[in-house]
Amino acid sequence: MTTDPFLIAGTPLKSRLFIGTAGYPNQQVMLDSLEASGAELVTMSIRRISLDSYSGSLVDVLSPRCRLLPNTSGCVTARDAILTAELAREALQTNWVKLELIGDRETLYPDVEQLVPAADELVRKGFIVLPYCNDDPVTCQKLADIGCAAVMPLGSLIGSGRGIANPAAIELICGRSPVPVVLDAGIGTASDAAQAMELGCDAVLVNTAIAKSHDAVRMAAAMKAAVEAGRLARLAGRIPERTFAEPSSPQLGLVGT
């Protein structure tokens, strides 16, 4: 088997599975899941501190184990998202950011009208921008054109576990994107992650499907295997679909003929 390097913005990443750190039963389960997932790139949010009780940081625990990708989750204006990215850069000393700009509280759908100019401004400020975006080839193309390091189209709604709602759109995006495509949001179980990779995604970001599983650590291992299996299948190439059966056993020498 040939090697299959994976780079974002020139940085090689060991794993094509990215994981989020939210919603685990406790920190130890999160850390054990991170270990089982083999993920290198791990997302965090940026939030106001509690002024009455600031003590230590999760970053102390995570930073020796992985590469941190701060997000701008919850931001609904470009101004807040850009400030959050700048605060994240100061706090974590990284210029990588997962840019989220939310247009609707109920669906957490991206606000594309604000997303593209915000991404543009962050790229100009020297950030490595990975935008969470619609499963829309035109939006993805615009984001790549302005210099985003990857695009992160949604499979389905954040936290919904409904898998890839529009596989044809994801496949189209993957076929045309000049930058890596990371499927973000909607993964419910391992087969969804495998499907994303089979469709041509370069990587998958999973949070809730692992964190809220009955056995998060085992699901993390399942996601690792699924991403690897899906990638191998993509590289190998699936067979054409047929309408009728095609016998797999030889047809000569059948008993009784």
Partner: peptide, 10 residues
């Protein structure tokens, strides 16, 4: 004034 830190996130 905004004072922030990284927390769990997806």
């Amino acid at each position: 004034v905004e004072i922030v830190r990284p927390l769990q996130g997806g």
